[in-house]
């Protein structure tokens, strides 16, 4: 029954900086089943966006394999990769900088169709644009407006329509709702969910909002400083979080519910810089359960329960 659409193996992305090697993504592996959603969560700077971009080869990974439907796309030539892009799309976080301000809604949505010569006829292309606009809930009359005339929610819908234009199989959603108001967030999340059901899409859902990821994903991968610390099906992760970081993260979400008074695990300090990291557990400097062993090496990702992986010396 297992049908992985995408498999990431030992993906690494290092950036050269003036202070040394920055380990943005450091040896991560995961698999996504077709039609499912993988949530990728973690704090700012932990390498979520870098992972998403490296998978699409918008930035070249330092090393590792990205196997999409059995083909390692990191080995494809420029021209072959361009063809593959049809199947893999991305929705960006910032609906204000991800749309070209000089292009109309029509031009923006039609661009991928024209660029990949999917529909050559201008009128047919416009019909397709209108169809896509309807799919994402944009009124027809907006077809000739410019993005700056629209609000964040509508702009994000344009981004979604554009991503859908090439009928991709997998979409990487890089914080698609973080920049939006609560009531608009819910509209967009519902839209993404409906699209997934009707088109059988696979999502990688990048976010720092655990409540949203809980609602949206099937599996969750928690990242800390470029590494995966815990990986599990959603229910498991929320009912039985194991890694100290995951537990702290879950306890830190403010919940708008007065009946629930939880004990908060508060972490010392802040996320450290990912430059020139020592050879120890990435979380050790902030960890409240840290033992000597944690300072002596990087813990491997171990399966502690079926499909539940944790990278922690204390808990495995």
């Amino acid at each position: 029954m297992s049908d992985p659409i995408l498999e990431v193996r030992n993906l690494k992305k290092y950036f050269k900086t003036s202070r040394g090697m920055l380990h943005a993504v450091d040896d991560i592996s995961f698999t996504i089943e077709r039609g499912k959603t993988l949530g990728l969560v973690g704090e700012s700077g932990c390498g979520k966006s870098t992972t998403g971009r490296a998978i699409l080869r918008l930035i070249e990974p330092t090393s590792g394999e990205v196997i999409f439907e059995g083909v390692d796309i990191c080995k494809l030539s420029g021209e072959q990769m361009r063809k593959k892009r049809k199947d893999m799309q991305i929705i960006f976080q910032d609906p204000f900088s991800s749309l070209d301000p000089k292009k109309t809604v029509n031009q923006i949505i039609a661009e991928p169709i024209r660029e990949n010569r999917i529909i050559r006829d201008k009128h047919k292309r416009e019909d397709r644009v209108l169809e896509l606009m309807e799919t994402v809930g944009l009124a027809e009359r907006l077809i000739n407006t410019y993005p700056h005339e629209l609000d964040g929610g509508r702009r994000q819908r344009i981004g979604i329509a554009r991503a859908l234009a090439m009928e991709p199989k997998i979409i990487i959603c890089d914080e698609p709702v973080s920049a939006l108001d609560v009531s608009i967030q819910a509209q967009i999340l519902n839209l993404l969910k409906e699209l997934q059901e009707s088109m059988g899409l696979t999502y990688i859902f990048i976010t720092h909002d655990l409540a949203a990821v809980n609602h949206f994903s099937d599996d969750i991968t928690v990242m800390y400083l470029g590494k995966i610390v815990e990986k599990a099906p959603v229910e498991d992760l929320f009912t039985n979080p194991i890694h100290p970081y995951t537990r702290a993260l879950l306890s830190a979400i403010p919940v708008p519910d007065l009946s629930e008074k939880r004990r908060r695990i508060s972490l010392k300090g802040e996320i450290t810089s990912p430059v020139n990291l020592p050879d120890e557990c990435r979380f050790a400097p902030r960890c409240y359960e840290c033992i000597d062993r944690c300072r002596q090496g990087i813990p491997p990702l171990v399966e502690v329960a079926p499909n539940h992986f944790v990278s922690c010396f204390v808990h495995s």
């Binding site: 892009r85 660029e115 990949n116 554009r162």
Partner: peptide, 9 residues
């Protein structure tokens, strides 16, 4: 949006 353009090839 430049990255978005690259993403569509």
């Amino acid at each position: 949006y430049i990255e978005a353009a690259r993403a569509i090839g």
